[in-house]
């Protein structure tokens, strides 16, 4: 399972592993919806994520916006270096982590 969710009293932790292609985006969206419907501080752990389709990146953007509208923050952990380079080169990383 590329996307898993653990929820505690105060926060959500979504762990993204392997590759999230276009087909896996639906599963990511479902997890994002669960988080958005029970808003808390959220950590996205993608240290083991090697690749993500732009559709999946959009879901993470949308989740961040939804939580921020409700006064909660999203924290992204240190990504895989290759993934970081990929997102950073094309301006996506900076836009994603800005609050």
């Amino acid at each position: 399972m590329q996307v898993s969710l653990k929820t505690s009293a105060k926060k959500h932790k979504a762990t993204l592993n392997g590759e999230i292609g276009f087909a896996e985006t639906a599963a990511l969206y479902d997890v994002a919806q669960q988080i958005a419907q029970n808003p808390k501080e959220t950590q996205i752990d993608w240290s083991n994520l090697t690749a993500i389709h732009y559709a999946g990146v959009q879901v993470l953007f949308a989740l961040r916006k939804s939580l921020e509208e409700q006064g909660y923050k999203v924290q992204f952990t240190e990504p895989n270096p290759q993934l970081y380079q990929h997102l950073h080169t094309f301006g996506v990383w900076d836009a994603l982590i800005q609050s």
């Binding site: 969206y29 301006g91 836009a95």
Partner: peptide
Amino acid sequence: CRFREQIPPLEQLKT
């Protein structure tokens, strides 16, 4: 590179 995102909130997003 400059990225212009026009991504809506989650409930309005089409994947």
